[in-house]
Design a protein around this nucleic acid. Structure first.
Lengths: 179, 179
DNA sequence: CACATGGGTTCAGTAAACGAACCGACAGTG
DNA sequence: CACTGTCGGTTCGTTTACTGAACCCATGTG
């Protein structure tokens, strides 16, 4: 991880995982990638992260095979960062953290997760509260809660005011349409 | 969290959770607490963490209600840090991270988790692979895997070479018995 | 041509982590 | 009583990381 000392001495798969995704901002970048954010600028404005740190995290996550950088247009050259299977495999951990946050750090509910097939809530074990089946990340729909800012600054937050199926690319308005 | 900038602008329960437990070392302290580590020195030698950082994390986690500091002997005064319900509620997140680590960052298996009642593996959704029921943290037994160091330096790692039921206090040998 | 956009890099200042040293209260040993 | 060791810390100088602002470059647009 760095800082002179890493967790390498730890014989523990939690430590190994945190060695990869435990740095500041890293899990939030992965979260956004799973939410469908793909472009540098969208990560930037949504996270409010310093550019140098974002560049570093995107590079590291790409090297780790959690994101994949790919050119989606040639002129001008533009790349996007798409979450890989290795990255989506972090979804259960993010979902569990989100659950804990809802129960122990939030006042109200900010967003919740629903099973796309039947509309049931995704329960504490990642299974659908209605139909009982485990919900894969691609079948999760994130729906906004009552405590969200209704007119956020950044276009990513605005796009996330509508229900959003995870993994699908997020469509943000071009900047010149901003109020 | 600090560093001048926190995640406070994030309307997201993952960010709220990471605001509390996202700092370096914090989740490993919670992990150890769930494994049954309770004493300052045991955290210290098992984690290999700088003392100042450990003191800070224990204080912060206590303030957050994730650990509870309590006096267990008067002369000399000795305190222990016991994980609270709020702390054990982080178990699903830790288990999911562990799962990811096993699949994507480990070579072999270091430790695994079993359902105490029936001996079945705790599966990817936190349910027992044998009997199918969700396994609460108190019913999890951690068993050592083949890749562990068989003669580790610190007494905590030595104690964890035997199967260990989570949450129960860990019994470490007194230092003068070390080889 | 001027200006905006996307995707970065560079750099100085600040905050955090590191590791070694130190400390106080007590217990056990000789 | 002195000596040694344990436990649970604090202090402090050094190294590393994060932050925020400025800058850069290629391209497209009015």
């Amino acid at each position: 991880m760095a800082l002179g000392k890493d967790y390498a001495t730890q014989e523990c798969s939690i430590a190994r995982a945190l060695e990869v995704v435990g740095e500041r901002w890293t899990l939030l970048v992965v979260r956004d990638a799973i939410y469908g954010v793909r472009r540098y600028n969208d990560f930037l404005v949504h996270l409010g992260i310093p550019r140098a740190v974002l560049s570093d995290r995107l590079r590291t996550l790409t090297e780790q095979g959690i994101l994949e950088k790919r050119r989606y247009q040639e002129a001008p050259p533009r790349d996007e960062y798409v979450v890989t299977e290795r990255g989506t495999a972090l979804w259960p951990a993010l979902r569990a953290l989100s659950q804990w946050g809802r129960e122990h750090a939030d006042a109200g509910r900010l967003r919740s997760f629903r099973h796309a097939d039947c509309g049931g809530d995704v329960g504490p074990y990642g299974t659908c509260a209605d139909c009982g089946t485990p919900v894969p990340v691609a079948d999760v729909v994130m729906v906004p809660g009552p405590e969200l800012d209704t007119a956020p600054e950044d276009p990513v937050s605005r796009a996330l005011l509508r229900p959003k199926r995870l993994l699908e690319p997020l469509e943000t308005e071009p900047a010149h349409l901003a109020d």
